[in-house]
């Protein structure tokens, strides 16, 4: 992994704004007053113990989860229950899941062309060209005609990244993209993500890979019990955590 800190490329345009977002699962209060601004090109890593609400937070951004109070504005569009707006936002926001969620009945190429063809109304030829372009970027163009079940975990996750990229999203969400992978496959996925970061993509990433966070993130957000406990630039975050809760957490995962 490159030691050199990635160039800070965050622009001024506000891509995501969350204003005192609250969410409940039944009676359980999972997100408490989340306030978060993400600018264009900014790369944010969310970390925290399991059940702290970090996945829920990013899943609210593309409305896989519904928030009950507060406002979420993505690229100038406010998320309400309006289906048209939800669709518009989902077109702009790509997501990569912990368990890949590739469609097992479609080939790698078909996985990648499905949404461009049905959502962006791209001709097949063009969609396939786009798909091959991104499969090349994640370094598995030779697997295009195979089915997801025939690939290794790392390869599947790279396909999932390519699939999301094929929609040319403005923002990418990563929900623990390396947690379900065997150790030797983590690096290939992280490398892909670093390359993506270098291209200036706006990224929100839930991960426990602190090395990745240190090199790639502009900002690290630490969450616990449904709220943002602390946020800071990586150097600050690792060397001088403000809250005692953060320090305990770092002590547990950094050994």
């Amino acid at each position: 992994m490159t030691e050199k800190k990635l160039e800070s490329a965050a622009g001024d345009k506000l891509m995501i704004r969350m204003e005192s977002v609250n969410k409940w699962y039944g009676e359980f209060h999972v997100l408490k007053d989340i306030n978060l601004d993400v600018r264009q090109g900014e790369r944010i890593v969310l970390c925290g113990p399991s059940g702290s609400g970090k996945s829920t937070t990013i899943r609210c951004i593309n409305r896989l989860e519904e928030h009950q109070a507060g406002r979420i504005i993505v690229d100038g569009v406010e998320l309400t229950s309006d289906l048209k707006q939800i669709e518009a936002i989902r077109r702009e926001v790509g997501m990569v899941f912990q368990h890949f969620n590739l469609f097992p009945h479609l080939t790698v190429l078909e996985n990648c062309t499905l949404a461009p063809m049905w959502v962006r109304h791209m001709p097949r030829r063009e969609a396939e060209a786009v798909a091959m372009h991104f499969l090349e970027r994640v370094r598995i163009p030779e697997q295009a005609l195979k089915y997801p079940g025939q690939l290794s975990g790392g390869q599947q996750q790279r396909v999932a990244i390519a699939r999301a990229l094929c929609m040319k999203p403005a923002i990418m969400l990563f929900d623990e993209p390396t947690s379900a992978l065997d150790p030797e496959m983590v690096k290939e996925v992280l490398d892909t993500m670093i390359e993506l970061a270098e291209s200036g993509m706006t990224m929100l990433c839930v991960t426990h890979e602190m090395g990745f966070a240190r090199t790639v993130a502009h900002r690290i957000i630490f969450m616990d019990r449904g709220e943002i406990v602390e946020q800071a630039a990586p150097d600050e975050f690792f060397s001088n955590p403000k809250s005692e809760r953060t320090r305990t957490f770092l002590g547990q995962i950094l050994h």
Binding site: N62, E87, F97, A115
Partner: peptide, 8 residues
Amino acid sequence: EAARSLGL
């Protein structure tokens, strides 16, 4: 969820 996140 994956299909939704792709905007289908």
